[in-house]
Nucleic acid binder design. Structure first.
Lengths: 273, 273
DNA sequence: CGGCACGTTGAGTTCACTCAATGCACGTGG
DNA sequence: CCACGTGCATTGAGTGAACTCAACGTGCCG
């Protein structure tokens, strides 16, 4: 068996964080400007390029830098802003009445947090940084005020809502009717394709969630996640090294995701090497 | 064992349907008026009582009567309207790429359908009448146009979205971390409390979903649903007769829902009678 | 060094699944 | 009228996928 070498430092991840788009700290009180933003091309809330002059001057959006385990907002807290992830990643989770955690998903740069609070002005779940993370905060009230005069913007709000719904329905579908192998394969593929949108490598990436989080998200135990991942690894379909993942055979992964059994040949030809 | 007597006719349910609030057919081309609507007190989209004069004159909302298995709208069809259930009930389901059905929930009178289409102007799931059902159709475009001038209305739209999200997250939570018994107990309780809002009996009601639908919704097989229901029935916690349900011991049901084991005494004292 | 967080792996169990048979109510057509 | 098919539900027997419990490895940090 290969030695298990989690390469990602555990506690406080000092990994490469694209701090580049963080405005110079201590300057202008964190005021951000869409014009300066490195992800403005991908930002669903930016109006840059839409012909207008950008949201910032009207909205006074600000950025915030969070370190690992820092909360963007907490369940039941009043809803005041939307947040766009600029760099890093964020986990959404929810505590049940009985106190156990349910992971609902994760957010990557260019994705929007906070829609869960629009219902009754209180957030339905908590969101926490998985690593050092920069978010752009957009006051919800002003944003909606603008939106009501700009059909273009209103449409985007709706689209965001839809995305949120779609996200949770996909998950439901995945959990409801699929095996552990299918869930994990599908999740890896989905994660990969989200990276593509970010113009990052979709073949080789780091998982930002712990095994326990993945399990929690997909309705599995962490042990099962671990077992399935190493099984797929041993079949040669992915390469796995702690949280580092490489997708060697995306087709095979897709086969797994739709319920095809793992090819025995794959299992054999790797052996115990 | 008690004889199994499904009391509900199967194919085309001729059950008492509150046709009462259906405007006189053939008159005024189905035009409805919130002022006449029997559920206006419970209607989340009516402005009656909000001080204004009701939505209808502006919106030209109409009602539609569907018989069992009639679709309100279908997955991927363009989104044009919101619908309020006035009587009857509606099932929401979604077909995956592989073609299998996932039940997402059901809608009772006073609940709003159609929010799933706001994302990209196409519905994310299908909705179909479970029995003879009357819905009120509200043109989405006009509704949103009104909403952008009436913050009161805009708030409601947001609340509807939130409700939709909440709904799907609750389901996720139920499926992700709970046993068959817990899922069914919790679902029964939730259903019961929805009936309370309708001022119907929350102790005694008819299930509008088939066993297979319930299973599909809760991530179980229909056999498991059947087994669990009869087990709870035999424990004396509910009374079950086909689709007719009576909650005898709501406390015990709540215990089940949070994972308490079924009291042996209950199992014993009913025996095989 | 010891403690901790995270991950992997094994052994045994169990809950929900699959497959299959049966029962009831209803509708249809001879 | 009965015979038959169909839709829905119940029930049993056997299986298996994922669970629980438990041990151990690794790397980090105080």
């Amino acid at each position: 068996m290969t030695a298990m070498v989690p390469h990602i430092p555990a506690r406080n991840i000092p990994v490469k964080v694209n701090i580049e788009h963080a405005a110079p700290q201590g300057n202008a009180a964190n005021r951000t400007d869409c014009g300066d933003c490195a992800i403005r091309r991908d930002c669903p809330l930016s109006l840059m390029g839409g012909g207008k002059d950008g949201l910032t001057p009207f909205l006074h959006s600000r950025h915030r830098i969070l370190s690992r385990n820092g909360h963007v907002y907490r369940q039941n807290s009043p809803m005041q802003s939307l947040f766009v992830v600029r760099s890093g990643s964020v986990k959404a989770y929810r505590l049940s009445e009985e106190g156990d955690e349910l992971v609902l998903g994760d957010y990557l740069p260019g994705e929007v947090l906070g829609m869960d609070g629009c219902a009754n002005d209180a957030h339905q779940f908590s969101t926490v940084a998985l690593e050092t993370t920069s978010v752009c905060e957009i006051p919800y009230g002003r944003f909606m005020a603008m939106a009501s005069h700009a059909p273009e913007l209103q449409k985007r709000v709706m689209a965001l809502f839809g995305a949120e719904l779609e996200r949770s329905q996909r998950l439901l579908m995945l959990i409801n009717k699929h095996t552990a192998e299918q869930r994990i394969a599908a999740w890896l593929l989905q994660y990969s394709s989200r990276l593509t949108r970010l113009r990052r490598s979709h073949r080789s990436f780091q998982l930002n969630l712990l095994r326990s989080d993945i399990g929690n998200l997909l309705g599995l135990t962490l042990e099962t996640v671990s077992r399935v991942l190493t099984r797929i690894h041993r079949a040669g379909i992915i390469k796995l090294n702690g949280r580092a993942v490489e997708l060697n055979d995306i087709d095979a992964l897709q086969q797994l995701a739709v319920g095809e059994r793992m090819p025995e040949s794959k299992l054999a030809c790797v052996g115990h090497a």
